[in-house]
C-alpha cells in the first residue's frame, strides 16, 4: 500500500463521514442526489461479491464492509427517515438511473477481462462508479446555494479519484503492476467528470464566496 492509495481511501472515507455528519447532525440531505447514492450502493454490492471468498487483508475487508454499510444506510436515511427524507430535493433530482445502468451493463458484458459472473459484475461496478456522480453534479448545478458540507462531500470524492490515479502511476512504476485498461480508463473518465466542479470549487474557496455552479 502506497501513500496515494491510502490517502485516496481516506478521502473516500472522509467523504462518507461528511455526508453522514450532514444526515445525522443537521438531519438534512438537501442538495444530495439519492440517485447517485443508490448508484454507489449498487457499485459496492456488485463489486464486493468476493468479500467472503477472496481474502486480501483485514484492512480491505473492513473497508469493504464500511462502504457497503454506509452506502446502504445513506440510501435508507434518504428514503425512509422521518425527518431526513423531507429535505430531499425530489423534484430537482430527476436523472434516470436506467440511462446509466443499462449501457454500463451492456458494456460490461462486451468489454471485460473474463466472461464470468463475478468478473462481469466487477467490471459493471467500475463502469457504474465512473458515471455515478452525474446525477449529483446535475443536482449541484440546479441548486442555487450549495452548502459547505455538500461541496466538501463532492470535493472529497473527486480527490479520492485523483489520488487513485496517482496510485496507479506509482504502482505501475514501482511494482510489476499489470496495465489494467478497464480500471484505468473508467477511473480516468470518472476523474475527468470532476474537473469542472473542481475548477469552481477552488475558485469559490480562493475568493471566499459561496460555491455556485453556472447553469
Amino acid at each position: 500500500m502506497n501513500i496515494f492509495r491510502l490517502s485516496g481511501d481516506m478521502t473516500h472515507l472522509m467523504s462518507v463521514i461528511v455526508l453522514l455528519l450532514k444526515i445525522h447532525t443537521i438531519k438534512s440531505c438537501a442538495g444530495i442526489s439519492l440517485k447517485t447514492q443508490e448508484l454507489y450502493a449498487l457499485v459496492f454490492a456488485t463489486r464486493y461479491l468476493d468479500i467472503f471468498t477472496d481474502f486480501v487483508s483485514v484492512y480491505n475487508t473492513i473497508m469493504k464492509l464500511i462502504f457497503l454499510a454506509t452506502s446502504f444506510s445513506i440510501v435508507w436515511y434518504m428514503r425512509h427517515h422521518k425527518i431526513v427524507r423531507r429535505s430531499y430535493d425530489k423534484e430537482q433530482d430527476t436523472f434516470r438511473h436506467l440511462f446509466l445502468i443499462l449501457p454500463c451493463l451492456i458494456l460490461a458484458l462486451v468489454v471485460n477481462e473474463k466472461f464470468t459472473f463475478k468478473e462481469v459484475m466487477w467490471t459493471f461496478s467500475l463502469y457504474v462508479e465512473a458515471v455515478a456522480i452525474l446525477p449529483q453534479l446535475v443536482l449541484l448545478q440546479r441548486t442555487k446555494n450549495i452548502d459547505n458540507l455538500t461541496g466538501q462531500y463532492v470535493f472529497l470524492l473527486g480527490a479520492y479519484r485523483a489520488l487513485y490515479i496517482l496510485n496507479w502511476i506509482y504502482r505501475y512504476l514501482t511494482e510489476k503492476h499489470f496495465v489494467h485498461w478497464i480500471t484505468w480508463i473508467s477511473g480516468l473518465v470518472q476523474t475527468l467528470l470532476y474537473a469542472d466542479f473542481f475548477y469552481y470549487y477552488i475558485n469559490s474557496w480562493k475568493n471566499n464566496v459561496r460555491l455556485q455552479l453556472p447553469a
Binding site: R5, D9, H12, D50, D54, V56, S57, N60, M63, K64, F67, E113, W122, Y164, N167, E175, K176, H177, F178, H180, T183
Partner: peptide, 10 residues
C-alpha cells in the same frame, strides 16, 4: 504478478 492483483484495491 497475478492477473487479479488490481482487486486488492477498493
Amino acid at each position: 504478478v497475478s492477473e487479479s492483483d488490481v482487486k486488492d484495491e477498493l
